[in-house]
């Protein structure tokens, strides 16, 4: 199978999965729903519509034979990996440690050669944003190693 058909395939599997899950949803008694729809009906209707459109899209691909999308460089995949790292650091240490590490590594990953510039960006940005949200907008941040020290 050509790579270009991977997208319609994934979209179709997703739509079928949604229909399968929707079919498992509870139904409401007639006296509540009346002449209207059950909760499952609308998502199923949407996914059927989507499957029809996916069929048309596949036909268009077959007719036009578009070029497969080129694979991105390491910057993109590395950035996505940093999102994962951010999740782990936020959950196990602190959101601001996560932001610091991601900004620093992202700057380096994207080509910043001056370590001190990356370090300053990673320090000043979350610092300023924290001050703005904490003092001006009165937002309380999630507890973690740093926030426990700050909030006490």
């Amino acid at each position: 199978m050509k790579n270009i058909y991977l997208v319609p395939l994934i979209l179709s599997i997703f739509s079928l999965a949604v229909i399968a899950i929707a079919l498992q949803l509870d139904t409401s008694p007639e006296m509540i729903v009346g002449d209207s729809m059950q909760a499952r009906s609308f998502p199923i209707f949407l996914m059927i519509l989507k499957l029809i459109l996916i069929g048309i899209l596949t036909f268009q691909f077959y007719k036009n034979n578009p070029k497969p999308v080129a694979l991105e460089k390491y910057h993109t995949w590395g950035s996505m990996f940093l999102f994962l790292l951010f999740y782990l650091l936020t959950v196990y240490t602190d959101m601001f440690i996560g932001i610091f590490v991601v900004i620093f590594l992202m700057s380096i990953l994207w080509g910043e050669r001056r370590i001190w510039v990356a370090f300053l960006t990673a320090t000043i940005t979350p610092g300023l944003v924290f001050l703005l949200f904490d003092y001006v907008l009165k937002i309380r941040f999630p507890r973690g190693m740093l926030m426990n020290l700050y909030y006490g």
């Binding site: 700057s107 940005t125 979350p126």
Partner: peptide, 13 residues
């Protein structure tokens, strides 16, 4: 390499 990491911080916060 400076701008977009800042956008990341603004986005998550």
């Amino acid at each position: 390499q400076i701008l977009w990491p800042i956008v990341f911080a603004l986005s998550v916060i």
